[in-house]
């Protein structure tokens, strides 16, 4: 690295030029298709949008009118917005712990490991909107919820959510924690479905941990439990950050507030309001991401 400093400035200039050359396709696309349109969305959010003939529209500046509208007049925005943000916050620990747990299990050697891993990747394959709708229909069916099955034939599982709640309440756990656990259990399919990519990333991380470290630890007499906390977790901690970022983005993109912004644009044709919703929610998610990642990065371990 130091050697380069001895060379003339022109070499550094050449390197910089080559660098720009390599990222040029992205740079053009970023400026033309992303930045320009993001600024346009920002402008839309402070304008009132009027439709004109031939599919175009006129913008006229209206200050913070759209923001005032969504926060004080819109029937459901505030509630959906807050619920979506809280939902993301609630889902982060659930998905991270679940996917880490599953990755740890899948990382062990057992028969048919390839097939089991394929099963856990299925939710990623089936994440398409059209398929999701069909699956929700048939989820009702497999639980016996469709009308074709008479009620006396429907199975009732021995361990219902309610009985777990009573059990936990008898232990004297605080109500908030019980609600959190019950919520997680009730949404188990959703959690499983949202963890496919994270499981894969954790698996990759687990396989990158050098086995020599474990050998040394076991010779020194550590238990697997200690090895997990002292070796595995620190080494994969940078990937926990990656997974948190992915989880937040993934949950946000599929959240109700994004759907709402989409609907108010393409169903109700109120583009200004939709832009304001998008801006508010994406700024909130960016802040959330910064906060959460800042918090987790404190505990993450980097080689450098």
């Amino acid at each position: 690295m130091r050697k380069r400093g001895k060379f003339s400035l022109s070499l550094r200039g050449r390197e910089a030029m080559l660098g720009y050359m390599f990222i040029m396709p992205w740079l053009i696309g970023f400026i033309v298709f992303f930045l320009a349109n993001y600024l346009h969305t920002l402008r839309m959010s402070v304008s009132s949008v009027d439709m004109v003939a031939a599919g175009g529209y006129d913008l006229s500046f209206s200050g913070l009118e759209n923001f005032r509208h969504i926060f004080t007049e819109h029937a459901t925005f505030t509630r959906v917005f807050v619920e979506s943000m809280l939902g993301i916050l609630v889902d982060i620990p659930l998905i991270i712990f679940f996917s880490l747990f599953i990755a740890l299990l899948l990382n062990r050697k057992f028969k048919m490991r390839g097939i089991v891993r394929a099963v856990f990747f299925l939710p990623v394959i089936m994440a398409s909107a059209a398929i999701t709708n069909a699956i929700e229909q048939s989820l009702l069916m497999v639980m016996g919820g469709l009308t074709t099955m008479p009620p006396e034939m429907q199975q009732t599982t021995g361990l219902s959510v309610q009985s777990i709640a009573v059990l936990l309440a008898n232990f004297g756990l605080p109500l908030q924690i019980i609600q959190y656990i019950i919520g997680a259990v009730a949404r188990v399919y959703e959690i499983v479905r949202a963890s496919g990519v994270q499981i894969l990333i954790f698996l990759a991380a687990l396989q990158s941990v050098p086995t020599s470290l474990y050998e040394v630890a076991f010779i020194e007499g550590s238990t697997p439990y200690e090895a997990f906390w002292k070796i595995t977790l620190p080494i994969i901690s940078p990937l926990i950050v990656t997974n948190v970022v992915y989880t937040v983005v993934d949950r946000y993109v599929t959240s109700a507030v994004v759907d709402m912004a989409y609907e108010s644009a393409f169903l109700h044709w109120s583009f200004g309001v939709s832009a304001a919703m998008s801006v508010v929610s994406s700024v909130a998610v960016l802040l959330l991401l910064l906060m959460v990642c800042g918090f987790i990065s404190k505990f993450a371990f980097y080689h450098t």
Partner: peptide, 10 residues
């Protein structure tokens, strides 16, 4: 991070 839904209209 920014979902494409945000810029889909322009």
């Amino acid at each position: 991070v920014v979902p494409t839904q945000t810029i889909i209209i322009p």
